[in-house]
């Protein structure tokens, strides 16, 4: 089983990102679940969501405490949240940033400037750049699911082609 924790802010689409990730994995023939942790769902508050991907049906409902991967959609949550909490030795970090970020040794760190991509692709809703569809492209590059399934998961959620364009850009930008 592969367990992923997503850090975002309320209103940023972290829960939808989790759903698209699980959906893409299912399209690859895997089993997956996605769930938000329900607490403070206020717009702008730090929130976490979880994705589990496995070769057999997922029977676990409790929270993910020892993820294989963390996805940070909004790096500013790191000011108040220990995003590395419980991350397994040798685990992966994906972060949305154009800066260099220092993480402790022992983790694989990947990054892409999803916010910059969203702005370039004019993927902006109500003044906010949309990062939850480009992240699907970035994670496809990391091999969480195939590129085709990622695209399908996006298009069945969002009809606007700017979403897949942004995902494609993120796919290209991530260096593996």
């Amino acid at each position: 089983m592969y367990e992923i924790r997503i850090h975002s802010r309320g209103g940023q689409g972290g829960v939808t990102a989790a759903r698209m990730m699980a959906s893409a994995a299912v399209k690859d023939g895997k089993f997956a679940t996605a769930c938000p942790f329900y607490g403070a769902e206020r717009r702008g508050a730090p929130i976490v969501s979880f994705v589990r991907i496995d070769d057999a049906p997922v029977r676990i409902y409790s929270q993910i405490n020892k993820p294989e991967m963390i996805v940070i959609l909004d790096p500013t949550v790191m000011d108040t949240v220990n995003v590395l909490d419980g991350l397994k030795e040798g685990g992966s970090i994906f972060i949305n940033t154009h800066d260099d970020v220092d993480f402790p040794a022992g983790f694989k760190v990947y990054k892409a400037d999803l916010t910059g991509i969203a702005l370039r692709e004019k993927l902006v809703v109500a003044g906010s750049p949309i990062v939850n569809t480009p992240v699907i492209g970035a994670l496809a590059k990391l091999g969480l699911f195939t590129r085709e399934s990622g695209v399908k998961a996006i298009t069945e959620t969002f009809a606007d082609p700017r979403n897949t364009a942004a995902a494609k850009a993120a796919f290209e930008e991530v260096i593996v």
Partner: peptide
């Protein structure tokens, strides 16, 4: 159905 644990989880 368990609140949130099942009502809000997404499964295929």
């Amino acid at each position: 159905m368990d609140g949130f644990l099942l009502s809000h989880i997404m499964q295929p």
